[in-house]
């Protein structure tokens, strides 16, 4: 009887969390797969149409534009913030005068809501009164500053810069934690063996930081696929969809055009791309598990 109760107990603790998770997260995920095979306006009941949403997706110019933009975002995210964040972590890992202040300055953007960052930067980018153009014109670099958010070639990159501004602190935190966990004796040993600073970094430090780098990579990819708030606040995907990303395009299809089945198929594509990285992360967690 006692044994039975003990076997039963964990399920008792897990009952509420599991039910909530199934109803609000896991169930909906599968329901989206179903919805992507239907024609649904959000009011009447969904109508099964097979893979027609996907067929249409492959001829949709805006879909590909948004996908490309997500990829540009992703490419920027796995390079610029990673290099900058790692560099800052290396610098701030030893006792720098004013260390606390520096760290705080880079952490701060992380705690601001995306919406807040978007609005603040929207003002910096303002064509006439904004700081950036004021400086450019003031220094005589240009006669008339560009419309950072209204120029087709600039809008997306202007938004990505804001995202990078937020992301650097995050990457830095992770690498700082990684660096703290490295035994300094390894580095000493390499130096005694005659390795120069660059060799120590390349051959000793980077490999030791590999586990952190995997996490950084996965987080960067997932964050760039989730991108929504900044675009929504700063440009709404414009001008002429030039800064549209999949999440925004999906939102517009679902809640402005009421093509919910079609929107679901966009979500499924996003999901399939992330799946690879979710598995990388799970594999990493699994390795930690095996060490126990």
């Amino acid at each position: 009887m006692v044994r039975l109760r003990r076997n039963f107990l964990p399920y008792l603790f897990l009952a509420i969390p599991i039910i909530i998770y199934l109803v609000w997260v896991i169930g909906p995920m599968f329901y989206t797969f179903y919805l992507s095979l239907t024609n649904w306006d959000g009011l009447s009941s969904p109508q099964f149409i097979g893979f027609r949403n996907y067929e249409r997706l492959f001829t949709d110019r805006v879909f590909f534009l948004s996908l490309t933009n997500n990829m540009k975002w992703l490419a920027s995210f796995v390079t610029v913030p990673v290099v900058l964040g790692l560099a800052l972590a290396m610098i701030l890992n030893r006792a720098v005068p004013g260390e606390k202040f520096f760290k705080m300055s880079f952490y701060m953007p992380m705690v601001l809501a995306m919406v807040v960052s978007g609005l603040i930067w929207g003002w910096l980018y303002h064509p006439r009164g904004g700081l950036i153009n004021s400086v450019l014109v003031g220094l005589g670099i240009v006669e008339k500053g560009p419309g950072w958010l209204s120029d087709r070639d600039l809008a997306l990159w202007s938004i990505i810069i804001v995202a990078i501004w937020r992301q650097v602190g995050y990457v830095m935190v992770l690498y700082l934690a990684g660096l703290k966990s490295i035994n300094p004796e390894y580095l000493e040993a390499a130096k005694i063996d005659g390795a120069n600073d660059w060799q120590v970094f390349r051959k000793v430090l980077l490999p030791l930081l590999m586990p952190v780098s995997v996490i950084v990579l996965v987080i960067s990819v997932i964050d760039s696929l989730r991108a929504f708030d900044l675009v929504s606040v700063m440009t709404r995907g414009g001008p002429a969809n030039s800064s549209s990303v999949l999440a925004n395009y999906m939102y517009i299809q679902a809640f402005n055009n009421y093509r919910m089945g079609y929107a679901a198929s966009i979500a499924v594509i996003l999901f399939l791309i992330s799946l690879v990285f979710i598995f990388i992360y799970l594999w990493r967690v699994m390795q930690d598990e095996l060490e126990y």
């Binding site: 609000w24 909906p28 995920m29 989730r226 929504f228 999440a247 679902a254 996003l270 979710i278 799970l282």
Partner: peptide
């Protein structure tokens, strides 16, 4: 606790936290 489904539930939680939330938008 060691019980059947422990790992499965655990990995479902871990995987779920990384979901692109767009995939939940319409059903939710």
């Amino acid at each position: 606790f060691n019980f059947r489904g422990n790992r499965l539930i655990f990995f479902t939680f871990v995987g779920g936290m990384l979901l692109p939330f767009q995939v939940l938008m319409l059903p939710v």
